[in-house]
């Protein structure tokens, strides 16, 4: 136990929290945008998984990290587009379609992986990092926080951008109205379906990048079912954050720390079966729900299809 508080342990804990937490944050941020607009996006797990797959494939064949992330985002959008079509345009149940998309993405990526990579299991080279001069020299947190792949900084920037959009732009206001009182938005002359479609596609893009982050930065490899519930944790993060993007970031880092505790403890020489560790984030989520469940507020029109003129 003497090794528990060494520099190496702390650095690996912070680093792990960031690596495991950023995909959760991207998913939570995306889910928050959907939920704000009144769409309960259960398909986000599928969006992440397809993003993870497509991001890996693009990065593997082009050798470009950036194209990989773009591919991941597009992968997420590819799964989000049917969600927008079926749930927002056609008014089908968001939960049923969400489950269908998640199952479909799981099956399809596992099939494609089986036919493409099951023999070889190729790995991606490590993603190059960008050290921020000065800050990265701080002991312990410096190398963990300020010597990361550029996409990590962009992801954190996305939180600020989302917060700004929510608070100070017309689109942010439209999003909020689409979730709180779509009829009012409609009366003001804004197309509710269009606002919600935008929200769902943005969600897909962010979730897809989150997935690509997992396969490109986190693992360096694509494994079937690799997101393992990260999308669902994102949904909880979004619920608990109650519309505030910064809270999503904090929550995600907390969960990330939970997830990365295994590797950090292994560095410190404590061995725990992986199954116990895998329970940690979900136990944490349930604990949060038990303690603060009553206060998780959701937009009134969440999950309901908007039909113009219907009462």
């Amino acid at each position: 136990m003497s090794g528990l508080f060494t520099e190496a342990f702390l650095t690996s804990l912070v680093l792990g929290a960031l690596t495991a937490g950023l995909p959760l944050m991207l998913a939570g941020l995306g889910e928050q945008i959907s939920e704000k607009a009144g769409v309960l996006n259960i398909g986000i797990e599928g969006m992440m998984l397809f993003g993870a797959y497509l991001g890996f494939v693009v990065a593997y064949y082009t050798g470009s990290v950036w194209l990989g992330f773009l591919g991941g985002g597009l992968g997420g959008v590819l799964v989000a587009a049917p969600m927008a079509l079926f749930c927002i345009r056609m008014g089908l149940s968001q939960i049923v379609i969400g489950i269908a998309l998640t199952l479909g993405a799981e099956g399809l990526t596992a099939l494609l992986h089986h036919f493409q990579f099951a023999q070889s299991y190729p790995r991606l080279p490590a993603v190059p990092t960008l050290a921020i001069p000065g800050l990265s020299a701080i002991p312990v947190i410096g190398p963990a926080l300020f010597d990361r792949p550029p996409i990590a900084y962009l992801a954190v920037l996305a939180v600020a951008v989302t917060a700004y959009v929510f608070r100070s732009t017309q689109f942010g206001l439209s999003l909020q109205a689409a979730g709180d009182k779509p009829a009012a938005l409609d009366a003001a002359g804004v197309d509710v379906a269009r606002v919600r479609t935008c929200a769902v596609l943005i969600t897909g893009f962010l979730a897809g990048i989150g997935g690509a982050f997992m396969s490109q930065v986190g693992a360096g490899i694509f494994v079937p079912f690799m997101t393992n519930g990260a999308g669902f944790i994102g949904i909880v993060l979004a619920m608990q954050a109650r519309g505030r993007p910064l809270w999503v970031l904090c929550g995600a880092l907390l969960f990330g720390a939970c997830l990365s505790a295994t590797t950090a403890l292994q560095v410190a020489g404590v061995s725990i079966p992986t199954d116990v560790i895998q329970m940690l984030p979900f136990a944490a989520v349930l604990m949060v729900l038990v303690l603060f469940g009553r206060r998780a507020s959701l937009p009134p029109a969440l999950g309901t299809h908007y039909v113009r003129g219907a009462r």
Binding site: M90, L92, I97, L103, G104, G107, L111
Partner: peptide, 13 residues
Amino acid sequence: LVVVAILLIMLGI
């Protein structure tokens, strides 16, 4: 899994 997912979507349609 793929069959089931497509089945659900077809059901919705």
